Amino acid sequence: MIRVLFVCLGNICRSPMAEAILRQKAAERGLSDQVHIESAGTGHWHVGQPPHEGTINILADNEIDASGLSARQVVEEDLDSFDIVVALDAENLGFLQTLRKQGQEVEVVRLLDYSDREESDVPDPYFTGNFQEVYDMVDEACASLLEEVENEWL
């Protein structure tokens, strides 16, 4: 089983969106029992809360199940228990790299590394309000990420 963790700032917008999207894509390809997907935030502000209403709405608009999503904070042990940790922007990537201990084999990447877009960071719709733009970016990159997981890891 490959374990994937998405990480953003508060774990209520971008990372739970990515978690739900990748879960659905994995299910559609019959990979649900081979790919475990979670999300977390670098901050503690929303721990235990459901995703932002904008995230829930955009997922519902695209017929993606958002049930069971609840914010949590990333912890050091996540870098031991996940194979791929995917940051949604440079700030979160930097935070994850400071948590990473020498010798840990976890792959720490940025989500838009799996995209042909010019941007390198997924903007935070908590501040921009543009959930559709973020959905489009995340959906596209998750498709490429799953392709790599299927070809390189499974």
Rank of each mutant, 00 (worst) to 15 (best):
I12E: 02
V108R: 05
D65Y: 10
G10E: 03
D83Y: 03
H52L: 06
E152P: 00
I21S: 08
V138P: 05
S15F: 04
P123E: 11
S67Y: 02
F6G: 00
N62W: 02
V85A: 07
F95S: 03
V106P: 04
A27G: 03
S15I: 02
Q97L: 15
L69G: 06
L93R: 13
L93E: 14
P123G: 05
V35H: 07
N11P: 03
E28L: 15
G68T: 08
N92L: 06
H44D: 13
N92I: 05
Q34K: 13
Q132P: 00
G103P: 06
D116W: 14
E38K: 08
S115C: 13
Q97P: 06
D139G: 01
E147L: 05
V109L: 12
N57L: 14
E76R: 12
L145C: 14
A26V: 07
V4K: 01
V47R: 09
E53Y: 11
V86F: 13
E133Q: 14
A141I: 03
E53M: 11
G103R: 02
N62Q: 05
A87K: 02
I58V: 15
A66G: 04
G10K: 03
R110P: 08
T42P: 07
A60V: 05
V138K: 05
E133L: 14
V75G: 10
E38M: 03
E150P: 05
L112E: 08
I84Y: 15
D121Q: 14
D136R: 10
G43S: 06
N92K: 02
T98N: 15
V134W: 11
V75A: 15
W153I: 09
Q102I: 09
F131Y: 15
D83S: 07
E152T: 09
A143Y: 00
L9A: 01
T42L: 03
G10P: 04
L146P: 12
Q24M: 14
D124E: 02
S70F: 07
V86G: 11
S144P: 03
H44T: 14
D124K: 02
R100V: 05
T128W: 07
C8V: 08
Y135P: 06
Q97A: 01
E140D: 14
N11G: 08
L99Y: 08
R14V: 05
E152V: 03
I64Y: 01
A18D: 05
D139C: 09
M17Y: 11
